[in-house]
Write a protein that binds this DNA or RNA. Sequence first.
DNA 1: GCAAGGTC
Length: 613
Amino acid sequence: MKIIITEKPSVARDLAKVFGATTKRDGYIEGKGYSFTWAFGHLLQLAPPQEYGYIGWKVKNLPMLPQKLKLSVRKIRTNEGMIEDPSVRKQLNTIKALFDIATEIIVATDAGREGELIFRYIYHYLHCQKPFRRLWISSQTDAAIKDGFRNLKPGKDYDTLFYSAHCRSESDWLVGMNATQALSISAGSKTVLSLGRVQTPTLAMICARYLENKNFIPQTYFQVIISLQKDGQNFKAVSKKNYYKREEAEEVLNAVKSVADGFATGGDISKVETKTKKEQPPLLHDLSSLQQEANKKKGYTADETLAILQRLYEEKLITYPRTGSQYIGDDVFETIPQLIEKQQQHPFFSKQAIVLANNKLNKRSVNAKKVTDHHAILPTGEPARNLSPDKQVLYDMIIGRMLEAFHEVCVKDLTKITIESGSTFIANGTVIRSAGWRAVYNEPEENDQDQPENNTIPKVSEGESLAIIEKSIAEKQTKPKPLYTEASLLKAMETAGKEIEDEELRYAMKGSGLGTPATRASIIETLIKRSYITRKKKNLLPSETGLAVYDIVKDKLIAQAELTGQWEKRLEEIRSGASVKAFKEEIKQYTRKITEELLIAGKELELLLEDQG
DNA sequence: GCAAGGTC
């Protein structure tokens, strides 16, 4: 019996179907000499400190540096505290029984670092010794699966990938557990003050933005606005300069030769520039972009969106949602015309679905090289009837984005007119020549409010003089960067590291950022659970505790996105063959250092937390 | 009581 193990049940079902295996057993599917079993994510986790004899949270235990970290079965929280998850234990027993009778093991967990770790942890925990081969595919179409099985790789080809995954896992444990205990103990052990490679830089971003916003001193400035007329059509122009004194603006205003001042045509057109701009459609959705859209448009939290998507996925209405790729491969692209055709009955999108059916599809979102473990989120094409309102909203966002992504470019004429009337004024106009993908939602763009755009601008030419029928002064204020919302925080986590100065570290974080698509929502929830941050309307605000923790760690490496960059660089080196030993030693050193620092620094928090009661 | 990672 050949045993295939996947990361999650849905993949096992897809593989079994291709092989024609149809007998459903408890925890696996059987047929044609194969058994397809599965994990559900990580079944095993690094054992908590008490399993090494570090009982209670005590300074004498710190830093906790066990000789060897152990694995233990995933736990769930119950009224009696943390217990082994019985469904996980049961599935491990199923996997063990299958491994015991296996003539061959084929590893089909997701094609990535964590997928490798999910299998290796199971394999080691079960003390399995049998050789295994690796399936490495990034789409679940029949063709991709068949091709993948014809090209199974020796398991050992992925040993270094496992080493890098293992280092990631152990390093997060060592730094996170020790830093958390050190800070919590030295602050008086009244509450859990957690710290970690991902959560602490995330907290730092929220706090830094909050303080920047709070301490921002707005500056008043003035613009002079004129209204011109041509052939009975009005449009606005704004002074080229901003003025910081009202008197200056008034001088400029007074110099404007308006009709009221006795000038029938006091606005001289000195320049007309028109250029055509092609605007590509947005890419297909990945989890993060969808969470951002759902937060902006509907106020859903990242966590809520993920939960709703999981239900849509379990009902087989959408493809795998926890993806970090906004692309699909050519094999999936072949199925797109049918998926679009199915939307021709859609109450809102039918018209554009019909338009698309008759158009050549835009292939901007088609790039097999940019498909990582999973491709972009798509509908499966299964009929979606009677969805709850929440599900309908997200399902429609996925459909809408699919239609946009395969649509034609939007073509616009951008016109910039320069007008002289005492001083220089600028009018900007945008005319959409061909809406392309923008026809899907048909929503106006968000404009830069400093430069009002005229949706239509009459045809004018250089040398013409137009009537100025109105003039006024607009008083404005400079604005701080806005507080983070979940949408902007997700974006910031994704792109964290883009500003890192060291080129190598910046490169190492490219395409990863802080956390992963699957974990960002839970990182935000952790910060809320610790009372580090609160939600206020759409904004995320730091609490007193959050700010106090930030103040203690803000200059330390643990609060910087660079830490992830440094690790990613080393982990990639390990994946390509570098020694694990040196990195592990550095992590130990860093653990000792940060633990020692926090045991001292946390004392500053003790009084503050007492004050809060 | 604690990390970050995965998923029902």
